[in-house]
Write a protein that binds this DNA or RNA. Structure first.
Lengths: 181, 181
DNA sequence: TCTTATTATGCAACTAATTGCATATGAAAT
DNA sequence: ATTTCATATGCAATTAGTTGCATAATAAGA
């Protein structure tokens, strides 16, 4: 559902090909939304069918032709309507939390190992986010309006990473007190 | 995929019917995993087919018969193996973050309204979590091993709510500086 | 020179999840 | 007396998302 709206949001800024969007979902918007290229290409065609997007084929030699998409007026209208409707707040599904429920019933060693892996990932991610903030978002109130929301999503990313790294410490200590089976 | 493992994790503690599991996913495990009854009933039948679960039909009059499921040895083995494999860390998809990207392109009013709605929800949720902590989890190290992981998931819930409420303040101020279209 | 990465899309099969509907009773609330 | 809630499952249709594979050129690195 909302993948299409995420795509339209990206297209507010500029026209994109599927390939470029796939990269966009790996970096910028990838902070809180992942999509594979297969999914994106499918979705783009569906959206073009509904006339939310218009497509222009760009001939190339050697490589496959590109298809560049832009948002239509109907698409923008759909997006505006979507923003009016409240999104449902669904909890983030996280396999690792399920694993924690198993502590005491299953061996804790692999869980601790995975916690350490996650810590490394979170540390890296936090660094990336902080670097972006320090480079482009030092004065939030001075940003153009179109950047303010993006800044706020970045702050969610930073805050989450900081929290998880904090929690990690407590988790490691407590899991250390679990008797091996 | 992981819904089946979440179900098996629940069944580590006790046998359950689909109906009871649906409630379980609305409360306890619902902090980080939601599933509708339709999905749960389907999944239970699939799992019984694979012999990860065994089913016992309990005849009732007036009401439909219950089916009570228990974890088999094969199911437990599957669960143990699953814990060994690292879960992939995928970001939580959140529609509201997409909406924030639209600030400056679309009217900010409904976004601010939704932020306020979310704040209320987060406040309520935080209270619920805190009450659970204060009632059952005041001394984490004194808990039985089987409760320690659950405590840690609860702390994730509390930490997330606290962070979002904090972030909410900054978000409201910054969104207040956005010029209306 | 051989391998790998980048560019650029697509099909097919499958699994996961949602939406809407249907059934049927007893108990509690209005 | 009527509505709503809780109990207890299910089907059918659809949408969303994943996995694996295929193609085909160019450029860069080992």
């Amino acid at each position: 559902m909302a993948l299409s709206h995420a795509i339209m949001t990206a297209l507010l800024e500029d026209d994109f090909t599927g390939y470029e969007l796939a990269k966009y979902f790996d970096t910028s918007m990838g902070f809180f939304w992942r999509a594979s290229h297969q999914q994106i290409y499918q979705e783009l065609r569906k959206m073009a069918d509904k006339e939310w997007l218009s497509a222009r084929v760009i001939e190339q030699q050697g490589k496959p032709n590109k298809v560049r998409y832009s948002l239509t007026a109907a698409g923008k209208e759909t997006l505006d309507q979507w923003i009016l409707a409240a999104a449902k707040l669904q909890p983030a599904k996280d396999d690792f939390m399920i694993k924690l429920y198993n502590v005491g019933h299953c061996d804790v060693t692999p869980i601790l190992a995975e916690l350490n892996e996650r810590q490394k990932t979170w540390e890296k991610q936090l660094e990336i986010y902080q670097r972006i903030r320090d480079k482009h978002y030092t004065k939030p109130k001075a940003l153009p309006d179109t950047q303010k929301g993006i800044y706020l999503t970045l702050m969610v990313g930073i805050g989450q990473m900081e929290f998880y790294l904090q929690w990690c410490k407590e988790a490691r200590v407590l899991l250390g007190t679990v008797k091996p089976l």
